[in-house]
């Protein structure tokens, strides 16, 4: 019952949705963008987007760049 998040294995959050994952990771949903199995999850859909074992997630944010 695990996920791959940013390349590392993590337990499935409870409830199993994107909003709970961000909460477990201590992340402010307003400053990240989430991709689930290669598809962007709109910010408004975090709570409504279920997670399943084996899902691959990418969580990104802006950093300094030129």
């Amino acid at each position: 019952m695990t996920l791959t998040v940013n390349g590392s294995t993590r337990p499935l959050p409870r409830p199993a949705n994107v909003a709970a994952l961000l909460r477990d990771c201590g992340l402010d949903p307003a400053v990240v963008v989430v991709e689930r199995n290669g598809t962007i999850v709109p910010g408004a859909d975090y709570a409504a987007t279920p997670l399943e074992p084996g899902d691959t997630l990418e969580i990104l944010s802006f950093v300094g760049g030129g």
Partner: peptide
Amino acid sequence: ITMALRRVDLDAGPANLM
């Protein structure tokens, strides 16, 4: 102003660039 997009370091949390 330009910026880049990167994976969040899940141990450190996101940078506060914005």
